[in-house]
Write a protein that binds this DNA or RNA. Structure first.
Length: 532
RNA sequence: GACUCGGUAGCUCAGCUGGCAGAGCAUCUCCCUUUUAAGGAGAGGGUCUUGGGUUCGAAUCCCAACCGAGUCACCA
């Protein structure tokens, strides 16, 4: 319903029925006054922008007097009114540019309404405006637009937090409350410029990977998010229901089995940036939906994939930072190739002094006990080794390190090691004590794969609700034959955290999952109550 | 899931040994034609997260709930 059709009284009545703040009421009045003056506060026509704040700031040269007819649009972010003159900053997607507004140049005739009323009273911080004029430098040397024409592009009726930065770059009155920042990311993006930088870097990370894969001729695939069997990882899925088919469907926890089907189908290399969904706890490093890049390349093994991963990660660091040295907290991570490589058993020997090679399950159990690692009798050999590694070794790998050759029980989709059937051809890339990438020489023996799935089934029957389901169609695909293949998955969110010096996943997701706000939450409670 | 910290004006926060609800910025009125955390004078603005309790009296003390942050556990 356009505002124009309501009288001021009607608008005020509407206002009173909502609880609006003083400033929100003021802005609604200003909006109505603009309309009364015949100014459309939300014009339909395009605005002929011909320059950006960044271009002007970087390229303006006082001597050449370039940018003599610019047309810039953006959000009004600050204002300093000095009587009949004024300075304000406009922020567009590229940054901020100062504008100089002079009463008699905006209003060349006797009618000074545009300056005195529209600009000074009815416009405010947060409004979108367009300005035309020429660029000059002020007495203090600040590049500015000397405005001759001002256009209202969109009125804002909610006051924006006013964040100020002083001469020393110190931020005053910052919009810092994390809850508000995540719930109202649009505001966060407007007033906290560093936030946008994180997402620009995220984009660089993703583009660098994509370009790297495409340069190798690999194919970007799209595979189902809704899956009848949630495969490819051990995790609790979200479940949903398809009405027409009347079947349950699961949100994908991984896309691995689908990409391998494509290798069966004859692609040499396939990759996908996969949004995965896991119905598990949330914390600083876990969001219910997250992004993993998975790639599968035929006729390769995990040793090749290690080289490939190294090259890719180094490229990413260079693309984001222009350097292989990346600051993270109080550490400097070096992504310069080659990364250190150690076997899992080697790592355990290095950090505990115990060589587990050839040891029986009982012996390893006793060693774990002696090391004060929490273990129980139900754990198999592989699980015991994994526990010892996570407890005693993981944290030591701050600089990028490949951990190779995991126990076979932990890796039901991975090919057995060519030299030792108790191990698999698997590596993880550890950085700052956490897993960043995970890769295999993929298991392509359909009989072995069936047996591994059956072992998972036993685990499931034993009460492990995260053991993998048997995917018969995937086994059928393998039976047709899959070439030797190496696959690698890398947590994009965690990689971005690493590259942007963030310890919270929420900082690298535009819209991290949050509990619904009050209104929605009350409705949810009602529904819960109805169920009971 | 456990523990710790927090929720007060549009934003950032003070007030918390119980006694009229505060500051800066923002808003409104006035002055100011090169300012940049502009400046000067004045004014308005509050469901102190919610619900109980103690008390003559609660933003403040107690209990519970909600929301968030952090630490740990779980998960990967």
């Amino acid at each position: 319903m356009p505002m124009q059709h309501l009288s001021l009284r009607e608008i005020l009545r509407k206002i009173m029925s909502q609880h609006l703040s003083e400033q929100e009421i003021q802005r609604r009045k200003d909006l109505q006054e603009l309309i009364d003056l015949g100014i459309e506060p939300y014009p339909a026509a395009l605005y002929p922008v011909n320059a950006t704040a960044k271009e002007i700031n970087e390229q303006y040269n006082d001597e050449e007097k370039n940018f003599q007819e610019v047309c810039v649009a953006g959000r009004l972010m600050s204002r300093r009114i000095i009587g009949k003159a004024s300075f304000g900053e406009i922020m567009d997607a590229s940054g901020r540019i100062q504008c100089y507004f002079n009463r008699d140049e905006i209003c060349t005739g006797d009618d000074k309404t545009m300056y005195n009323t529209v600009y000074k009273k009815l416009l405010g911080i947060g409004d979108f405006i367009g300005v035309k004029g020429h660029v000059f430098k002020t007495q203090t040397g600040q590049t500015s637009i000397h405005v001759t024409e001002l256009t209202v592009l969109a009125k804002s009726i909610k006051p924006l937090p006013v964040v100020k930065v002083d001469e020393e770059g110190k931020v005053h009155d910052g919009f810092m409350n994390p809850e508000q920042r995540y719930r109202q990311r649009y505001v966060d993006l407007v007033v906290n410029p560093g936030v946008k930088d994180i997402f620009i870097k995220r984009n660089i990370v993703i583009n660098t990977m994509r370009e790297f894969f495409n340069a190798h001729g690999y194919f970007e695939a799209e595979t189902p998010v809704l899956q009848p069997i949630p495969g490819g990882a051990a995790a609790r899925p979200f479940i949903t229901h398809h009405n027409a088919l009347d079947i349950p469907l699961y949100m994908r926890i991984a896309n691995e089995l689908y990409l391998k089907r494509l290798i069966v189908g004859g692609f040499d290399g396939v990759y996908e940036f996969s949004r995965n969904f896991r119905n598990e706890g949330m914390d600083r490093t876990h969001n219910p939906e997250f992004t993993v890049m998975e790639i599968y390349v035929a006729y390769k093994d995990y040793l090749w994939m290690m080289d490939f991963t190294e090259e890719m990660v180094e490229k990413i660091a260079l693309a984001v930072h222009g350097s292989t040295e990346v600051k993270f907290g109080d550490k400097v991570l070096s992504f310069k190739r080659p990364f250190k490589r150690v076997t899992m058993l080697g790592a355990i020997e290095e950090h505990t002094g115990h060589n587990l090679a050839g040891k029986s399950e009982e012996e390893i159990y006793e060693i774990a006990k002696a090391l004060h690692v929490e273990v129980d009798k139900s754990m198999g050999k592989g699980k015991l080794i994994d526990e010892i590694f996570s407890e005693k070794c993981e944290k030591h790998y701050v600089q990028p390190t490949f951990i190779m050759d995991y126990p076979v029980e932990m890796s039901p989709l991975c090919k057995k090691h060519r030299n030792n059937p108790e191990l698999t051809e698997r590596f993880e890339l550890m950085v700052n004590g956490t897993e960043m990438a995970n890769a295999y020489s993929e298991l392509n023996d359909p009989i072995d794969q069936r047996e591994r799935f059956e072992e998972q089934l036993k685990l499931m029957e034993g009460g492990d609700d995260e053991a993998m389901f048997i995917d018969q169609d995937f086994l059928r695909a393998l039976e047709y034959g899959m070439p030797p293949t190496s696959g690698m998955g890398i947590g994009v969110d965690r990689l971005v955290m690493m590259m942007t010096n963030n310890t919270s996943i929420q900082e690298v997701l535009f819209f991290p999952q949050m509990r619904p706000e009050k209104v929605a939450e009350k409705e949810g409670e009602k529904k819960e109550a109805e169920k009971k």
